Simulated assay, not measured.
Amino acid sequence: MLVDAAGVRHAPAGPEPRIVCLVPSITELLCDLGLAERLVGRTGFCIHPWETVRTIPKVGGTKDVKLDAVRALAPTHAIVNVDENTRGTADALAAFVPHVVVTHPCGPLDNLPLYRLLGAIFDRETEAEALCAALLREHDALAARDWPARDVLYLIWREPWMTVAPDTYIARTLALVGWRTLPRPAADRYPEVALAEVAGAVDRVLLSSEPYHFKERHIAEVSAVLPDAAVELIDGEMTSWYGSRAIAGLRYLGERAGG
């Protein structure tokens, strides 16, 4: 049954779909499913694989989609995400795009139904199953190891400092290697945090490359407040991007945690 994250049932797309994707990681996934030629629009943040997507028209950002630009492309399908895009955008698209596919992976294994949903809608079942097998290999390799529990602070923003709650895709990915995100629990999915309040309680601070692009100079800034924690940069695409990048992401995470 081809049912998306909003509970909407979709039929197979047919031989010539016109897809606008408003989710960077899923744009990459569509390309890896062999659907690059069917992509007619993307956001400015959809940058992978660059040599493939650079010629695809941009329709704004993930939160500020240019609806007139999308309309001009006459898509048959628009792909959106609960966290990346706004409900208002999805509702507006539904007024003129025949099929709006809503996605919402909340953990690494949610990539399996994501691959299969898009593979079935766009006639790429074989490619989707190959991705499923690759993801399961990486996931099972992490699950087979006995990872020591570590309390980590994963920072995604500065001024104010912001982190991730335990119910996010990022936190559930980090949990595969025993990294428990602080604070626990959190009322918001992406809460503000005062660094001084977690002093002495955190083993490791991870400074993500996105959405705020932390750099080497920020390591000293955080270390000054949290001198007992190991502070390091981490590739946010590898920890937060679902879709096909999650396969390499799990391998990357295992290498970082085991190092």
Rank of each mutant, 00 (worst) to 15 (best):
residue 79 I to T: 03
residue 32 D to T: 01
residue 44 G to V: 09
residue 97 V to N: 06
residue 133 A to Q: 15
residue 224 A to V: 02
residue 187 A to P: 08
residue 148 P to N: 12
residue 141 A to D: 11
residue 100 V to T: 02
residue 164 V to G: 04
residue 39 L to S: 03
residue 142 L to C: 07
residue 165 A to T: 05
residue 51 E to A: 12
residue 80 V to N: 08
residue 66 K to Q: 13
residue 39 L to Y: 00
residue 200 G to M: 05
residue 184 R to Q: 15
residue 39 L to K: 05
residue 32 D to Y: 04
residue 186 A to I: 03
residue 162 M to R: 15
residue 99 H to V: 00
residue 63 K to S: 07
residue 121 I to P: 04
residue 250 L to R: 06
residue 2 L to T: 12
residue 43 T to H: 00
residue 56 I to D: 03
residue 93 L to R: 01
residue 96 F to Y: 03
residue 112 L to Q: 11
residue 17 P to C: 00
residue 81 N to R: 10
residue 90 A to T: 12
residue 115 Y to D: 09
residue 122 F to C: 01
residue 20 V to Y: 07
residue 259 G to T: 11
residue 94 A to E: 14
residue 135 L to T: 11
residue 247 I to D: 07
residue 232 E to P: 06
residue 5 A to C: 06
residue 105 P to I: 02
residue 157 W to A: 10
residue 81 N to K: 00
residue 115 Y to R: 04
residue 62 T to R: 09
residue 40 V to E: 01
residue 100 V to R: 05
residue 83 D to H: 14
residue 74 A to C: 13
residue 19 I to L: 07
residue 45 F to D: 08
residue 29 L to H: 03
residue 242 Y to E: 01
residue 250 L to M: 03
residue 83 D to A: 12
residue 102 V to W: 15
residue 114 L to H: 13
residue 69 A to W: 05
residue 53 V to E: 07
residue 101 V to I: 15
residue 149 A to R: 14
residue 199 A to P: 00
residue 66 K to M: 08
residue 96 F to H: 00
residue 24 P to K: 02
residue 217 R to S: 13
residue 106 C to Q: 15
residue 135 L to S: 01
residue 148 P to V: 03
residue 137 R to L: 13
